[in-house]
Structure formats: structure tokens, C-alpha cells
């Protein structure tokens, strides 16, 4: 047998194959799918979700889970708008200050999340879920349930300014993906996520400060959620307390579809990129080929199952919960 055609390689590349297969499938049904304009549409739709998914990837690699994204994205989006308006309402004056501040806020929310999880010894599922509630609640509180709008042209350039047909935000997201990849493979923290996910007790026995790594993971995730919050505002020109709605399921589904194992230690940023693209290609493709609205949730569900089935290494797991 060819040495490149091993089982390991088949499993590693399965998600990408699924993605390519889907593109071919949708193109065959409607050639309009395979156009630069449509790809731009897919990438814009995927941009904020990808940032959320990358954030949660770090957590899942550690073998934990983070469900606070909807609250964090909602709160950061809303506060970004307020800050942006308070500092001049345009990037040209002082609005840019809002960006680093909001990233810090995201990190702070993640920090609290990590503290609650690690210090109070509450499983991350519950801790992050509750923090998510608090985040959404805080967003409701500051907006009073209203919508906040931003119409600064310089800021909206993220969406409107196109380079080679793709809006600026796609390149920004690309930059953050590279940053995430860099953290994952070239920093101690990134590697320690894998150590914790691969064997928490062993990592502890090797002298690793597992608790610190866990908290830092949530901080990092929070920062990426904040990026998603800002991008969500750039995309829609407004924010409200529910700006983060649906991100939880979409992002975690994408991560798993991309081949990151929920039990930790396996997969990474590139898997997540592919996973997010798979989910968004399915979403977009169903519209392009004219599938009735009411069918789309069901079909997405079934296709996600197929994608997970195709991209998990069933021999390496004894049972699944």
C-alpha cells in the first residue's frame, strides 16, 4: 500500500475531503455556487462564527467545554458599540480605542469564567453556561433591551472595503487564525493545552500548573469571543443583547465536525477552520440550490451527523457519551 494512504492520513484529511465533496456536490447542483461572489458571502457569514469556534477549540483541546460564548459575544458587541460611540463614534477620531479595551474585556470575562471553573471546582459545562447567562443578562441590563447602531464608514469598511473581492474582515479573520495557529504550535501555553487534554493527571505529575493553564485557556477563548463580537457589529452595523445568539451550537458543532475530539488532546485550529467552512458551506449551499426554508435545519442536522461519522476515528474510542 502507498505510504501516504495510511489510516492515520485518511482520518486526518477526512474533514477536508468532506468539505471538498460538499463544494463539488453543491456546484454540480447549481454552478452559481462556485463563484467568487458566493465564496465571499460564505466567508463573511463564517467570519464571526470562526472566531468563536477558534476560541472554544482551545478549551475543547484541553478536554473541557465552554458554553459562555453567546453571553460574551453579546456583551462585548454591545459594550463595543457604547464605547465606540462614547469615544467619538468614528475610527478616525478616537473610536479605535474601543477595540483593545473590548479585547481586554473579553479576556476578563474569560478569566472570571476560568476562576469560577477552577477555583470553585465547578465543571466547565456548568460554570461557563452560568457565566454565559450573566453575560447576556449584563448585555440586557446595559442596553435596556434596545438596539445600538454604529454607522461609521471607516469602521464599516471591515465589511464594505473589498480586496480581491473579499471584504477586509475576511483578511482580519485570516490574521487571527494565523495568530491562533501560532499560539497553538509555537507557544508554551498552546502546547500545554495539548498536554492537559492528552493526560491531565500525567501533566500534573510532570509538574505542570494545570489550573493556570486552564484559566489561561478561558482567557484566550474570551479574547477570541470579543473579536467575534466586534466583527458581528461590523457585519450588521448594530448590536443588541442577543447578538451572540446561536453561536454556541454552531461553533461547537463546527469544531467537532472539523475533527477536534470532545475528549481533548486531538485536533486544532486548522480542523476548526475546515469545520466552520463545512457548516457554512452546507448552510449557504442549501440556499443556493433552493432547498425550502423549513427543511434546512433538518438537513443541516443530518449532514452534520454524516460529517462527524466520516471524520472521527472510531477505532480510538471505546465509548461515546
Amino acid at each position: 500500500m502507498n505510504r501516504y494512504l495510511t489510516r492515520e492520513n485518511a482520518i486526518r484529511w477526512a474533514p477536508l475531503m468532506v468539505l471538498i465533496g460538499l463544494v463539488i456536490l453543491f456546484t454540480a447542483i447549481n454552478p452559481a455556487f462556485f463563484s467568487q461572489r458566493n465564496f465571499a458571502r460564505i466567508t463573511v457569514a463564517a467570519a464571526p462564527a470562526l472566531m468563536v469556534a477558534i476560541g472554544v477549540t482551545f478549551i475543547i483541546v484541553m478536554g473541557s467545554i465552554d458554553l459562555s460564548m453567546e453571553g460574551t459575544v453579546g456583551l462585548t458587541a454591545v459594550l463595543f458599540c457604547f464605547l465606540f460611540l462614547a469615544t467619538g463614534g468614528t475610527l478616525a477620531v478616537g473610536g479605535w480605542v474601543a477595540m483593545p479595551l473590548i479585547l481586554l474585556l473579553g479576556a476578563a470575562i474569560g478569566f472570571v469564567n476560568g476562576l469560577v471553573h477552577v477555583k470553585l471546582r465547578i465543571p466547565s459545562f456548568m460554570a461557563s453556561l452560568a457565566i454565559g447567562f450573566v453575560g447576556t443578562g449584563a448585555a440586557v441590563l446595559v442596553t435596556g433591551g434596545d438596539i445600538v447602531k454604529i454607522d461609521d464608514d471607516t469602521f464599516r469598511a471591515l465589511l464594505t472595503w473589498r480586496i480581491a473581492g473579499f471584504p477586509l474582515m475576511v483578511y482580519v479573520v485570516g490574521g487571527f487564525v494565523l495568530l491562533a495557529w501560532f499560539i497553538q504550535s509555537h507557544t508554551t501555553l498552546g502546547r500545554n493545552f495539548y498536554a492537559v487534554g492528552g493526560g491531565e493527571e500525567l501533566a500534573h505529575a510532570s509538574g505542570l500548573n494545570v489550573r493556570r493553564v486552564r484559566i489561561m485557556g478561558f482567557v484566550l477563548a474570551g479574547m477570541f469571543y470579543a473579536v467575534a463580537g466586534i466583527l458581528q457589529v461590523a457585519k450588521l452595523g448594530q448590536a443588541e443583547s442577543v447578538s451572540g445568539a446561536n453561536f454556541m451550537f454552531i461553533s461547537i458543532t463546527s469544531v467537532v465536525v472539523g475533527g477536534v475530539a470532545l475528549w481533548g488532546g486531538i485536533g486544532g485550529v486548522w480542523n476548526t477552520v475546515v469545520g466552520v467552512l463545512i457548516v457554512n458551506v452546507i448552510n449557504n449551499g442549501m440556499v443556493v440550490i433552493g432547498l425550502p426554508d423549513f427543511l434546512q435545519d433538518g438537513v443541516l442536522g443530518l449532514l452534520v451527523i454524516v460529517a462527524v461519522v466520516l471524520s472521527t476515528d472510531r477505532r480510538s474510542i471505546s465509548f461515546v457519551k
Binding site: 502546547r191 495539548y194 498536554a195 501533566a203 510532570s206
Partner: peptide, 16 residues
């Protein structure tokens, strides 16, 4: 007690 998904050198210097 080596973490299987890490490389040999990462295991050797884990935590250091």
C-alpha cells in the same frame, strides 16, 4: 506516564 499525543521532546520538557 508520557502524554501520547505530544512529541518526545515536548514530553521530556513538559512543564519546563
Amino acid at each position: 506516564s508520557l502524554i501520547p499525543n505530544l512529541t518526545v521532546m515536548e514530553n521530556i520538557y513538559l512543564g519546563y
